[in-house]
Nucleic acid binder design. Structure first.
Lengths: 132, 132
DNA sequence: ATACGAGTTAAAGTTGACTTGAAGTCAAGT
DNA sequence: ACTTGACTTCAAGTCAACTTTAACTCGTAT
């Protein structure tokens, strides 16, 4: 049983135009056509859901493509791919830390802030980032 | 003591062109000019560091402006601003959850994945999102 | 038979967030 | 006097990621 572009769209939350675009840039494989129309396999939905998760975290399409194309199929997973993955994991961990800082600031503003001045209370949450 | 655009740039990590752009769109107030040049106060750096944090989380500029402009100055903080803030907090919490799911997937791929097929192991981390 | 809805392609348009380029100003150093 | 380096403005260019438009093709229901 195959799925129309509309069905895939509603299952994944992507617009049909987005699915065509993703195909055009090679992010998803080109599905068979049945009388001109795309006939997706169910597995396409799984791939797209990973893409949706990655996009929700603002992974660029090139990055997602690399992530998915280098997928460790049974054996492989190149050193290059593994290194890239470690980088991605580190970046996500840093991002999680940033979210916690931002949540700290927003909750402070929402609940009990009496600083009166942004500068006064902001430094608590914007401390750090002394590298390079 | 005031800061040149170059000093503010190196303290905040923004390019000078970005600082000018932020000023042009009203995200940061227009600093005094001393013989034509911008002379920033130190507090501008604090504001910009909050902006840097928000931008690192891909907050749109309009959102950041609203966040900063509605800052609870001693007394205020409109109901509208408070509501927007609750929304932002919820969005960040959801984003943190997405990061955890993605980290779960990436670590699985990096360490012990023997699924061989993306679809096979992806469903564990792409489950959820059954709303509306 | 024909109208409808959902699909098709290719090309052009949009948006947000910057960056770059051109042409000029200014203070300090040689 | 003049070069340098960091600045100025304003307009235009860039980039990723889509979306929109135009013109067309199907299969199905009336």
């Amino acid at each position: 049983m195959s799925l129309s572009i509309g069905e895939v769209a509603s299952r994944t939350g992507f617009a049909p135009s987005t699915l065509r675009y993703y195909e055009s840039v090679g992010l998803v494989p080109s599905p068979n056509r049945v009388s001109g129309r795309r006939a997706y396999e169910e597995t396409a939905v799984d791939r797209l859901q990973v893409i949706a998760l990655a996009r929700s975290l603002d992974f660029p399409l090139d990055d997602i493509r690399e992530l998915l194309d280098g997928f460790p199929t049974a054996t492989s997973a190149s050193a290059r791919w593994r290194a890239a993955n470690r980088t991605r994991i580190a970046a996500l961990e840093a991002q999680a830390a940033d979210i916690e800082r931002m949540l700290g600031l927003l909750r402070h503003l929402a609940e009990d802030c009496e600083c009166g001045d942004l500068a006064a209370c902001a430094r608590v949450w914007t401390a750090r980032r002394e590298d390079a």
